[in-house]
Simulated assay, not measured.
Amino acid sequence: MNIERLRTPFFIIALVAMALVVCVELGEHLIVGGFDAGTALTDQAAGAGLQVPAGGQVERPAGLGVPYLALVDVVALFTVALMAAGLVVPAKLQGRLQGIVTLVFAVLLVLAAIGLLVLAVAKLILMVTLLLAFPFGTIAYLIGFGFFPRGTATVILSLIMFLKFVFAGSLAAAQQRFLQNKGLVALVLTSLLCTVAVSFLHGVVPGVLASITDAVAGIVCAVAAIVWAVVLLVGAVVGIVTAAKATADEARSTALAVAT
């Protein structure tokens, strides 16, 4: 990266914007889940021709789609953070450490994404099974998952999309050569497309089924994260091998110089 031509303020804005994106996504369950949804659930059940037993408190289910976006966006944050490290860390040291740090990050991301993917698939199977087990399973589904706060999720997704546009625009303004980095462009596009996919899956079905499509959105994000984690893993291995070879060549050259 050409540090001399880098517009640092825009780069910092991009870094902060993506950090905010990840924070909002990880904190989404604090906004969406855990609040009483009894009235809304009763209305939706009545519209479906079912009666939900009274006397209990029904909470909004915490979604998977928005938090799972963090699996993809943390890759973008990590990538930009590595670039930021180049501003303060000597290039020689960064070259030696970048491959190892990326390898550790990629392995952790793969493990986390696979674990969360299994969780999302299990939740999806549970919800579909309950929904199809009419009437008692359907009632249980309505009580546990029948109300998904699409309005709140839409607001959060709009904020996330805005921050992502700020990130992309600031990154391009910081240095136009970033637009020539095909991997970075593909990563940003993946992040944007995953956000659009989550929003689409939330709105494509009636509200009573939104929890199911939200789980599908989580699966999509987890799969995308696994793909990018594998890409990082391969790149890290190549980088480590290249750095090791360069170090060996440097040591050999030094030894020959001393010998002569």
Rank of each mutant, 00 (worst) to 15 (best):
V128W: 04
G144W: 01
I125C: 11
G47P: 06
G203N: 13
E59V: 10
V75M: 08
L126G: 15
R96V: 14
L142V: 10
L64A: 11
V72F: 07
A257V: 10
S253C: 04
V118T: 10
T260L: 15
A113G: 01
V32L: 11
V258K: 11
A259R: 07
A197F: 08
I240Q: 05
A133D: 08
V196G: 07
A46F: 12
V196N: 06
V121C: 05
V205P: 04
V104C: 12
N2S: 04
D43R: 12
V74K: 03
I212E: 02
T152V: 10
K123V: 15
L159A: 13
I125R: 10
I31W: 08
T247I: 15
A70L: 00
L111M: 11
V58F: 10
P53D: 01
Q176K: 12
P61A: 02
L87T: 01
I226P: 01
V223S: 01
T138H: 04
L201W: 01
L103Y: 13
E4G: 15
L209P: 15
M83T: 12
L119D: 12
V58E: 10
Q176G: 07
P53G: 03
G27C: 06
D36M: 03
K92H: 14
A76T: 07
F78Y: 12
S191A: 09
M83Q: 11
D214V: 05
M127T: 01
S191V: 04
F178A: 00
I139G: 05
A229N: 03
L142M: 13
C194G: 02
V121Q: 03
Q176P: 04
V121T: 13
A248C: 06
P206V: 06
V72G: 05
A244C: 11
R177V: 15
T42R: 14
L6N: 03
S191L: 02
A37P: 02
D249P: 11
F136P: 09
C221G: 05
H202D: 10
A40F: 09
L6F: 03
I12N: 02
L26F: 03
L163K: 01
I160C: 00
L116V: 08
V216W: 02
L163Q: 01
A120C: 03
A37M: 01
V227N: 05
A120V: 07
V52D: 14
V72T: 07
G99Q: 06
V32E: 07
G169F: 02
A225F: 00
V234E: 10
V155G: 09
C221A: 05
M18I: 13
L184D: 04
T42A: 15
T247Q: 15
V107T: 06
A186Y: 07
L163E: 01
L111S: 12
L192F: 11
S158H: 04
Q175H: 12
